[in-house]
């Protein structure tokens, strides 16, 4: 499979405080990579550097051998190719659900209105929210909003999808409905990079697990390797923190 995304020697600092140091990663087409690690380990910043929401101090991010960060120019076409879903959903509160989904393909990709609305309806139907298409975000539950946010990213036909702790703000009973959508996307063979705290989900969805701590990728491996045969102490300690004794 071809490489879609390449991150080389990525270095990121906020006001001189290093958050990411010499991070390297290659993502192949159709691969699902899950990033886990303690809070503050830099995993969210890592995602934000990939689609240029953060500037970087050193190294580079390549999409199909094309440098996208650092390179301020023409980030818009990058954003079309990289879809991102945030922890706080961030639907546009003044637009209906279907308008939320349709806004970017119409304005950014200049696609035909009817095509966009048709596809938006199909995608909303797929995540079980077609009935809500004329509602406003405030009328939806957190889980529903997050599913809309996923659809909003999908309709741009991105080559890779970034998920930044998309279930962290949700009530426990809503986590499942969102994760199931992501699982079904994985089965379709979509390329995804997922930051999450849900270990069972990580096990189920990932082709590869990255464990980050202190701005480094500390351990890397298949889910079986990582969860059954944890190599590093740091990762062991992290996994232990999820257990009650």
């Amino acid at each position: 499979m071809e490489d879609i995304l390449k991150i080389e020697h990525l270095h990121k600092a906020f006001d001189g405080f290093t958050v990411l140091e010499d991070v390297n990663l290659t993502v192949k087409k159709g691969e699902v990579t899950v990033v886990i690690g303690p809070s503050g380990c830099g995993k969210s910043t890592f995602l934000r550097c990939i689609n240029g929401l953060e500037d970087i101090q050193d190294g580079r991010v390549l999409l199909h051998d094309e440098v996208i960060n650092p390179n301020k120019k023409d980030l818009r076409s990058t954003h079309e190719k990289i879809g991102m879903v945030f922890q706080s959903y961030d639907l546009f509160p003044h637009k209906t659900i279907i308008d939320n989904v349709a806004l970017a393909p119409i304005k950014v990709q200049k696609r035909k209105k009817e095509d966009v609305y048709k596809e938006a309806s199909e995608l909303l139907d797929r995540v079980g929210l077609l009935a809500k298409k004329d509602s406003f975000p405030r009328q939806l539950s957190g889980g529903q909003k997050q599913r809309v946010a996923i659809v909003r990213a999908l309709i741009m036909h991105p080559e890779i999808l970034l998920f930044d702790e998309v279930t962290a703000a949700l009530d426990p009973e809503m986590v499942r409905e969102v994760l199931e959508v992501i699982l079904s996307l994985a089965k379709e063979g979509r390329t995804m990079l997922i930051v999450t705290h849900e270990m069972d989900f990580a096990k189920a969805v990932a082709d590869r697990i990255l464990f980050m701590d202190g701005g480094h990728i500390v351990e890397e491996g298949s889910p079986e390797e990582f969860f059954e045969n944890t190599k590093t102490d740091r990762a062991k300690r992290f996994l232990d923190s999820f257990k009650y004794k």
Partner: peptide
């Protein structure tokens, strides 16, 4: 307007004026 609104619109590829 929350900064996250601007970020999520940026992530969708919208230009500053859009």
């Amino acid at each position: 307007i929350a900064n996250t609104q601007i970020e999520s619109a940026t992530a969708l590829g919208m230009s500053k004026s859009q």
